[in-house]
Design a protein around this nucleic acid. Structure first.
Lengths: 360, 360
DNA sequence: ACGTTATAGCCAAACGTTTGTGCAGCCGCC
DNA sequence: GGCGGCTGCACAAACGTTTGGCTATAACGT
């Protein structure tokens, strides 16, 4: 368990005639000199190329591994990547990891990438084109083998340019154009929320719609409003307000929605944190969520169920989205065709939307 | 803004006599051949080594930059790192990025590292030794120039071993031993919470203490209980319960604390998300936070103020912790001495602990 | 005995950079 | 007009790997 560097060896150890490079960290050369073997042989042993013709003898292999352990050899992936022309590195762009949804997706990405033998390098783009561009250039510079984008804009302008690099990529969380992607089935999710509120008797509803360039918010909103429109209760344009996915955005949007008289009897927020912002504003105005105004969020983050007024939400399999995204990417790198995958959402009804509309 | 690869050039362009390596992506060699210069000259130009004696002429430099742009050259940092023996990469270990506190700290780390010309590579350790070890080995393999640990265990066993690598590091979020670190002043923070609740009249208090190996939780708890003990109201051992920092952990701990009769009149949770778990349990038991039981959290995450019962909290300058951590690390790499820095917390009183204890 | 084949390992080139050194040409100076 | 110093670039050696090709020995079948 305890690691130890090359410099930790016994100082008085008698050195073989040749000057053993004991200066910096141990490299293949260090081991080669110590064992009297050639560096290529050491490399093959350590890479487990034991199968096939090129294998070393069992005894040699054992000796190499022994010495490698002793000197605390740790391979230089940079050098290997240079030679191999592949970094075994996946670049990941997220809008921001303080968004728990994106952090959860990233966990799925990281875990699954590790299983496939890839490392990941993640950056926050803050949904800002310049920052995104800078970080992507950085990742390209580090020769990532592929990319995962969790911050796509629905217009797909950036991705069109990026595709020219020939680096394979898949989108998670937000789809865009016909690029390969793994997302929650946001249309189905939006409809679930609509069905639920409609069934409760709500007809005057408002939507906190998320950022206008994010496909997840767009789809959730579109399916939701379509459902009401199809039943003869179209949602007026001013009752759909765009805002950031966090609590502050939700609060801002709620202010606008509730300034209208009569205020909506139900609010659908396309993100739980935005919904929490809505709950806060309701309380400030002396309205009780679940009684005066029904609230439904999206994603079903862990705290949704723990809130003082537990929040109804559409469950988004976030970890799964990340995991499946990497799976798809790996398949694509093997030459399999790109896909657009959607994962099924699930409605979780809680107190914030439990009681039927009384027409108050 | 739009990127374009080397393969995007006009196909019919007449090539200079030598075979121009137009196959894969553009390298220094590509540019060298296109300009008729030597690769070393190109390198110097592109690295902005314009100062001093070795500079290229202004005309040459301009031509090089022009061609570099045309062929869409993007440097190979791996190769540069190999030669330069420094990756300009900072490794970051966090317990898990779905913890908004750690994600915020990471944002500070990422931003500040970028300012200093470093890239960051972050991994989730899940507070699990084996996973931590695996990811750290990975980062070492990628030849990180330094490390930031946000997941230190207070015993410091792992770090003692790690120090042998000679890779400089600083701790953020959780201190350990006398390793350099940047943390919130958790002792001061715990005391702030204690002073506040004591002043309100609470004498029978409980603590949700966080994970037993996390110094931040330990310090916050220690200062809190010490304050009460010094005033003749020691907190019984069974009223200090350890749990994870998230809502689930807080809920679990709250169950235990409230099973006791009489239950505590105030609960201090060393994390806001744990506090939210506490709020949930209070509600389930028909107790009202802020009236029946005062609750104070820690960190002051954005949603604390937005909750239906806004949560009192001790503000932790999380972003700042990350940023200052990198600053310190960079200074250390320049040879300046290590430090242990603490940042001042600040009490934010809200409804969850606004009313004085009535002795109910 | 001899050709064939498998085994075990060495050799060297290559990946794309950076950087110390060498070397022309040119300018100015005495 | 010789010479020192500067300018502007080229040369080549690294950095640590991986990998195709090669060689020497051994085993083996005929």
């Amino acid at each position: 368990m305890v690691l130890h560097g090359a410099s930790e060896g016994k100082a008085a150890e008698p050195e073989p005639d040749g000057p053993v490079a004991s200066g910096g960290r141990a490299t293949l050369k260090t081991i080669a000199e110590l064992t009297g073997l050639h560096v290529s042989t050491v490399s093959r042993v350590l890479n487990g190329t034991t199968s096939g013709a090129r294998a070393a003898s069992a005894a040699t292999a054992e000796r190499v591994r022994q010495v490698a352990l002793e000197v605390g050899y740790v391979p230089d992936i940079q050098a290997a990547g240079l030679r191999r022309q592949s970094s075994r590195l996946l670049g990941v762009m997220m809008a921001r990891l303080t968004d728990q949804v994106l952090a959860s997706i990233y966990e799925g990405v990281e875990r699954t990438a590790t299983q496939h033998g890839f490392h990941t390098m993640v950056s926050n783009s803050w949904d800002d084109p310049a920052t995104r561009q800078a970080h992507v250039s950085m990742l390209l510079s580090r020769r990532v083998d592929a990319m995962i984008f969790g911050d796509a804009h629905v217009d797909g302008a950036f991705l069109a340019g990026f595709a020219a690099h020939g680096v394979p990529f898949v989108l998670v969380n937000r789809r865009a154009g016909d690029h390969p992607s793994v997302t929650c089935d946001d249309l189905a999710g939006g409809q679930l929320a609509a069905e639920h509120l409609y069934a409760l008797g709500h007809r005057r509803v408002g939507v906190v719609a998320g950022l206008p360039y994010a496909a997840n918010g767009i789809d959730r909103t579109a399916a939701f409003t379509r459902y009401f429109a199809e039943r003869g209760h179209p949602v007026p344009g001013d009752q759909v307000v765009h805002a950031s996915f966090d609590a502050a955005g939700g609060a801002l949007a709620a202010e606008k929605l509730l300034d209208r008289a009569p205020h909506p009897s139900a609010i659908f927020a396309v993100s739980d944190f935005a919904a929490i912002g809505v709950l806060g504003v309701l309380r400030e105005r002396g309205l009780r969520a679940g009684r005066d105004v029904a609230v439904v969020g999206f994603n079903d983050v862990p705290i949704a169920a723990q809130l003082t007024i537990p929040l109804s939400s559409v469950r988004n399999p976030m970890y799964e989205v990340g995991a499946r995204g990497v799976d798809l990417l790996v398949r694509m790198m093997r030459g399999e065709p790109p896909e657009r995958i959607t994962l099924a959402p699930e409605l979780r009804i809680r107190e914030s939307s439990a009681s039927p509309y009384t027409g108050a």
